[in-house]
Amino acid sequence: MEQYYGYFLYLLSLLTMGGIYAVLTLGLNVQWGFTGLFNAGIAGFFAVGAYVQAILTTPIYARHLGGYEWPIPLAMLAAMALSAVVGYGVAKICIRLRADYLAIATIGIAEIIRLVFKNEGWATNGPRGISQIPKAFEDLPQPWNTLAFVAMVLAIVMVIYLALERARTAPWGRVMTAIRENEAAAAAAGKNVERFRLESFVIGSALMGLGGALMAQYLKQIDPQVSDPLTATFLVFVMLIAGGSANNKGAILGAMLMWTVWSATEILTSRLPDEFAIRSAYVRIFLIGLILQFILQRRPQGILPERRPKPHPRLRGDRAPAANTGSTKQ
């Protein structure tokens, strides 16, 4: 019995991490999936959110800025706000870059942000990071605290999902898709393309900041390693593409599924015979790469491909809905 209780707790941890990653993939979906903005600096916005949360809520500690002891929800809002501000700044200078160029610029900016958190030790305790970050509901007894935290994460994912679904089917979302598919046509139709792209980038960045704020609480420890580009940027892209770009359900599914693959492969590889003991960890990374290739080749549209909102009734019959190819994206 106790054994199954353990599995249940592990399942909750998968849901928590999957949920936090889902917040990130949903944020990325706004930018990449809807609008086609190739933001490869997720880790940067994530780090801003995580550090804001950590600094605003931790008790006073001599080695980093802190002692403000804000209530957790308020700090989460602040984390979102500051990520949005940073996102606005980045978007202001980079938004006219297309596709891969935007990707590379944002990778560079994210690395610079990480270096700032690493080097400005007076505020962040440098590479040693911030510990003892308060976590929502942690005063409840086990397992209620875990359950409550999972519930909070999943509720946040749900709220974001509903809001984004609404935005997607609303005129705003249609303009985004139009910009992604054919920017010149959207501009010709009188849409202020740059402004829409900027909005999309800022909203996505705010969500990434929220993801960081949740991660800081869950781990209770934040250091520059947490925003390492491998697990904080590329993994998020992998999740979104595997789940189904431009599909909000796909984004959530991709996060949950890929995190499970990322985490649970180790349960398999740690069972390899002794002579592989240490090497099993490398086998695991290899397996992750292989599963990714498998998904890519078998389901190139993602597990849940994009579904366009139905044309407005007034337009139906005027023209056929655009073919769902996704291949016009760069």
């Binding site: 106790e2 054994q3 353990g6 599995y7 707790l9 592990y10 941890s13 985490s263 180790e266 349960i267 740690s270």
Partner: peptide, 8 residues
């Protein structure tokens, strides 16, 4: 999480 909950 894995060693505590799955491997117990």
């Amino acid at each position: 999480n894995k060693v505590v909950n799955v491997e117990q």
